[in-house]
């Protein structure tokens, strides 16, 4: 309807003139809350040695102790401090989550953009992606672990390989939609080189979708790490991660629920923070959404 478009067009006066956190909080509360929560978690993880005791210390006489002043979150079946292990475990979980999300997004972006622009590469790459897509992450991780032994690196590789196809397809579909846009053609007419067109006119359009994707990836990677550690093929059992903490304490859930709940709640909060951030960033990068405000 002509009227609606006309009024939408006359609307925008508010640009990002003011900056700073208060403005971000008001305009994009999701980014503010999600980002703040995630930043807090990262700081707590990095600063763990400053406030928590050694997570590897065993106190065989204090097994499955409830919450106390000495051990804030009680102890697990080997008498280890659950609070210390949760604090140090954040390092592994966040590392796995953020690194695999980043590496997946980067490879997916690379494959997706080239596939969106080059037909020959597209037909080959997308068949390979279809193949990779059909491999379950857990199985691949199990196979890789059986070759090299358990470790964080292997985990990240397995998650990246199996999640890249979805990301690549997502990017490719965005690129295919955008490359025919008149403003992309206009850039070519203006004598822009292909890399510049990709960087300046096509890449930004993939960001909203990638933001959501990377939040999902991050959450899913943390969960996968938890799952693999649960199966015993994640990080070695003595190194704390939220995943293997939940895994090793699950038997004691009826008698020492704190040993499962502490890492479980942290995991849930992290996934929530990442998802909030992803949703918020999607709105932030969508010019149509910002225009409405």
């Amino acid at each position: 309807m002509s009227l609606l478009s006309a009024s939408a067009e006359a609307a925008p006066k508010g640009r990002l003139q003011l900056s700073g956190l208060p403005r971000l909080a008001r305009r994009h509360p999701l980014v503010f809350i999600g980002g703040g929560l995630l930043a807090l978690l990262i700081i707590l993880a990095l600063a763990a040695p400053l406030y928590a005791s050694d997570p590897l210390n065993l106190y065989p006489f204090k097994r499955l102790q409830p919450l106390s002043a000495e051990m804030w979150l009680g102890s697990d079946n080997l008498g280890r401090d659950v609070f210390a292990r949760t604090a140090f475990g954040a390092r592994i979980s966040l590392l796995v989550g953020l690194t695999s999300a980043a590496s997946t997004v980067l490879t997916g972006l690379l494959v997706g953009i080239i596939a969106g622009y080059n037909r020959r590469f597209d037909s080959i790459a997308m068949r390979i992606m279809d193949g990779l897509m059909s491999i379950p992450t857990i199985l691949l991780a199990l196979a890789l672990v059986s070759l090299t032994g358990a470790g964080i690196g292997i985990l990240i590789v397995a998650i990246t390989i199996t999640h890249t196809p979805g990301t690549a397809r997502l990017v490719r579909s965005v690129v295919l939609g955008v490359r025919e846009r008149p403003y992309v053609e206009a850039a070519l007419c203006g004598g822009a080189r292909l890399p510049k067109v990709l960087w300046r006119h096509i890449l930004p359009s993939t960001i909203p979708a990638l933001m959501i994707q990377s939040a999902n990836l991050c959450a899913s990677a943390i969960m996968t790490e938890a799952g693999l550690s649960f199966l015993g093929v994640g990080v070695p059992p003595e190194i704390p991660s939220w995943g293997n903490m939940i895994s090793s304490s699950r038997l004691y859930l009826p008698i020492a629920p704190w040993s499962v709940f502490a890492p479980g709640i942290c995991l849930a909060v992290t996934v929530l923070a990442v998802n909030l951030l992803g949703d918020g960033l999607r709105d932030l990068f969508d010019p149509r959404a910002t225009r409405r405000r």
Partner: peptide, 11 residues
């Protein structure tokens, strides 16, 4: 170009 809306990069 024809369409004054889609021929300018909104970003």
């Amino acid at each position: 170009f024809q369409d004054p809306y889609s021929s300018l990069n909104p970003r």
